[in-house]
Simulated scan of single mutants.
Amino acid sequence: MAEKRKRVRTRDVVAEGLYIASAATRLSLKNRMLVHILAEGEDFDVARYEAEAREALLTLAEEAEADAARTERQRKRARGRHSESDGTHDYRSRDVRNLRRRQKQSLHVARELRARAEDVEELRKLILDARDVAWNEVAKNIDRTLRIEAARPDLDPDYERMRGARMQALRLVDLPKLTSRRRSLAKQQELRAQGIEPEILESGADVFDPAELE
């Protein structure tokens, strides 16, 4: 049972490592696409990015292999040491088993990444996923720009007509409400000065909201 849990845990760790590697590759490809297509005006072509996707995966495989080699050195130093640890990476004999597991996990990730780097279909999938991410980013930027532009009064064809209606509403409705409210408050203050508690306005009755002037 314990061995089965270890296998499951190892499989999960490897899967997470591959997921992170794929996400990093998509991000790298997305950034290059934005440069090539938007800045340099190139057309999108899957074959154009195969070499770059392969290179990104191989670079990550080399990093995983380097991590495995580093873990192996730490494991060898930790063997036979039984004193108290001085820090997070100051390993002891009791850590040897976990270090060996980490080494195997890193090597497993590296092998899988190298296999994917030689799989044309896997490369194509990464490239198309990166294209979708790049397109979504561009679409959001365009939408945000259009919203900002649409909010400009000089680009709104109905701005002048609606501005007249808003000003008329201000003169006929908002300003009289404001004047009435101020008179009511002044009257309440005058009554309180005479020791008379004024009648409280009903909620919402002739109450002016400054936001209405916007």
Results as ranks from 00 to 15, higher is better:
Pro198Thr: 04
Ala69Ser: 06
Asp209Ser: 01
Arg92Met: 11
Trp135Ala: 10
Arg171Trp: 05
Leu146Asp: 15
Met1His: 10
Val13Asn: 06
Asp12Gln: 14
Arg147Asp: 15
Ala130Ile: 15
Asp156Asn: 15
Ser93Phe: 07
Arg70Pro: 02
Arg131Asp: 15
Leu175Asp: 06
Tyr91Lys: 06
Ser93Glu: 13
His108Ile: 02
Glu118Lys: 12
Glu214Thr: 04
Ser22Met: 02
Arg94Glu: 03
Glu50Val: 03
Ile142Trp: 13
Ile20Met: 12
Ser85Ala: 09
Ala186Gln: 09
Gln103Thr: 00
Ser85Ile: 05
Pro157Ser: 14
Ala2Met: 08
Arg182Gln: 05
Ser184Asp: 07
Arg26Trp: 08
Arg147Tyr: 07
Lys104Ala: 12
Glu197Tyr: 04
Val138His: 03
Gly195Ile: 10
Lys187Tyr: 08
Val96His: 03
Gly80Lys: 00
Lys140Phe: 12
Arg92Gln: 11
Arg92Phe: 05
Glu118Cys: 12
Arg161Phe: 15
Asp119Thr: 08
Val133His: 14
Ile200Phe: 00
Tyr159Leu: 13
Ile37Tyr: 04
Arg163His: 09
Leu155Arg: 12
Gly195Arg: 09
Glu118Val: 11
Arg114Tyr: 08
Pro210Arg: 01
Arg171Gln: 13
Tyr19Gln: 05
Leu123Ile: 09
Asp132Phe: 15
Gln168Lys: 08
Ala53Phe: 01
Thr59Met: 03
Pro198His: 00
Glu50Pro: 00
